[in-house]
Design a protein around this nucleic acid. Structure first.
Ligand SMILES: [Mn+2]
Ligand SMILES: [Mn+2]
Ligand SMILES: [Zn+2]
Ligand SMILES: [Zn+2]
Lengths: 136, 136
DNA sequence: TAATCTTTGCAATCGGGTTGCACCAAAAAC
DNA sequence: GTTTTTGGTGCAACCCGATTGCAAAGATTA
């Protein structure tokens, strides 16, 4: 596992106090975090600073965003070597019981066959159901 | 192609003026429509009436909603016989150029393999890229 | 040091979505 | 056929997540 500093260095994002603490928080959570989640966790950091940090991180591919249908965009740290292009595609799982959203890095995505002459760029693939913890 | 009246009858939704015109509009469009889209098209119908109509339609499975990441929920008429359960799953395509979102009914969805003990209930699968019209 | 660029915090704003309420029309009860 | 009940509609207000303008603080460069 890389440290915050290493990740920021690799992704060419200048290290600042807010960025370090936001990234550290994201790394410490198993579920993808919304702006509100982060705001609640980092009570001394302003929402707009967190927001802009997330935008910066996303542009520099430190994190990726997930639209899970909850109405709040969620963010998760990219896997090592991720470039956020089709080869990095993975499902996201939203548990309808515990309401956690997380990346399913270990599930391979079948090749997506598109109609003739369509070009795949990215995808937002959210699978919903019960996670192992809640499916008992 | 079924008429609005037939669809509403089959799905057990009472036919009203607003419902007929909203459904007719949805049927007439090739791309999935946002609340705003419909509002702009039906200038004499109130937004909240359209909104409540969409909610009713969704509950009664006349339409399904799509989170394409644009920030606005889109709606499309369900295919005949659709029950909005896993067997009715299909990809949605969002063209990053013309910004149309639509159902890919003809592309079969590969079986989604989840980790042990996860249970699939639904999914929101949005594929992004260039549609055939824009990929030239 | 002085000038310049970037980051941060605060407050205000935007916009999609949602709701309370009064009115009205259709359906049900009488 | 008239009254009562139920449900749909329009209007205005509101909620809340996201976004932005601006000035202060901090970092970088000349
Ligand atoms: Mn992910
Ligand atoms: Mn669809
Ligand atoms: Zn769960
Ligand atoms: Zn297109």
């Amino acid at each position: 596992m890389q440290t915050e500093e290493e990740i920021l260095k690799i992704k060419k994002v200048k290290n600042t106090a807010v960025r370090t603490v936001v990234l550290r928080h994201l790394l410490s959570q198993e579920k993808a975090q919304s702006l509100k989640d982060i705001e609640n966790a980092l009570v001394y950091t302003d929402r707009s600073s967190i927001f802009r940090t997330l935008k910066t991180f996303e542009k520099k591919k430190v994190i990726h965003s997930i639209e899970d249908g909850s109405g709040m965009t969620k963010y998760a740290v990219c896997a090592e070597g991720c470039n956020c292009d089709p080869k990095d595609l993975h499902y996201h799982f939203y548990c309808t019981n515990c309401e956690k959203t997380f990346c399913l890095f270990d599930v391979t995505i079948p090749n997506i066959q598109l109609p003739n002459n369509f070009k795949l760029q990215q995808a937002n693939l959210v699978v919903k159901g019960l996670c192992d913890n809640c499916n008992k």
